[in-house]
Design a protein around this nucleic acid. Sequence first.
DNA 1: TCTATCTAGTTCAACTTTCAAGAAAAGGTC
DNA 2: GACCTTTTCTTGAAAGTTGAACTAGATAGA
Lengths: 167, 167
Amino acid sequence: MTTASTSAPRWLTDEEQRVWRAYLHATTLLEDHFDRQLQRDAGMPHTYYGLLVQLSQAPRRRMRMTELARNAKITRSRLSHAIARLEKNGWVRREDCPSDKRGQNAVLTDEGLDMLRRSAPGHVEAVRQAMFDRLTDEQVKSLGEIMRTLATGLEPEGTDADLPWLR
Amino acid sequence: MTTASTSAPRWLTDEEQRVWRAYLHATTLLEDHFDRQLQRDAGMPHTYYGLLVQLSQAPRRRMRMTELARNAKITRSRLSHAIARLEKNGWVRREDCPSDKRGQNAVLTDEGLDMLRRSAPGHVEAVRQAMFDRLTDEQVKSLGEIMRTLATGLEPEGTDADLPWLR
DNA sequence: TCTATCTAGTTCAACTTTCAAGAAAAGGTC
DNA sequence: GACCTTTTCTTGAAAGTTGAACTAGATAGA
């Protein structure tokens, strides 16, 4: 039995508070930074760009909706709207799944791939400048381990977890 | 002279790609997690909650709009909407700034403080579970340094930077 | 003073995300 | 097969965010 609602709260230490705030500040600024960079150079928010990247790396440049949502860590609803928008841009098209009549594949179009090729160098450069150029090799390694740990914590194996793409 | 647009892009190494993806996954999941937790337990998204926390720690529980935007790393426009909503809830009220007739102070109301007191233990517990309980002391320390570095990188001292609260 | 410029904050429209509801097909179980 | 449950994906409305335009007050220079 958990008694979180009645037992004395374990407050954060001063250092934990500083780390937590630094985390919030950095992630907020980074998200804002990349959203702007990509809105300017590719005409879409970072989330959408990530979807195109996923598709570009998938076999035959296509992926089932739920699978794509799982990879992007977002809800299917959100994905539906996003794909609709990208479809309007001509960068993605939908395709019925042959093996499951409920299913849809999102397919990266040639135009989508082109746009990705054009904007990739600029985006990589932005990621370098904002993140990798500022950290030592140790820090990069450490960041990787930390982020993998945190991500795994929120999507455990034995899954009754409340994960976005299952909602 | 920078020649980013014409020189060969410095692609990310395999490890850098893995770290970058882990970062995106973890931050997306964490944001989703805390937004849900607070929407459920406090009736607002995490950004809004953060504003109330800031106000609660400010002298006389009030702060100038732009100052609050700077602390939260968001645009003044976004803040205007957020405060309007929190005002409707009765958790914040606006107050004219005595020394500058253009200015507004956002003031945390007693109701706002109450709501914060009620929801704080649950939120702290959630932050612990999702972050601090999963990391070693080294990792927490390292995470703090990394995040401070990244945040500082995006808001340098000699400031012609494109910062949200100046837009 | 007069004028130009800058700063503080808000507003509107367009866009994105969330949440709840729903249609359609798939997968049991009897 | 008939029935019930689950899975897949979409939709529409409400909530939140963005970017540009705008008002009003402060500031600085001639």
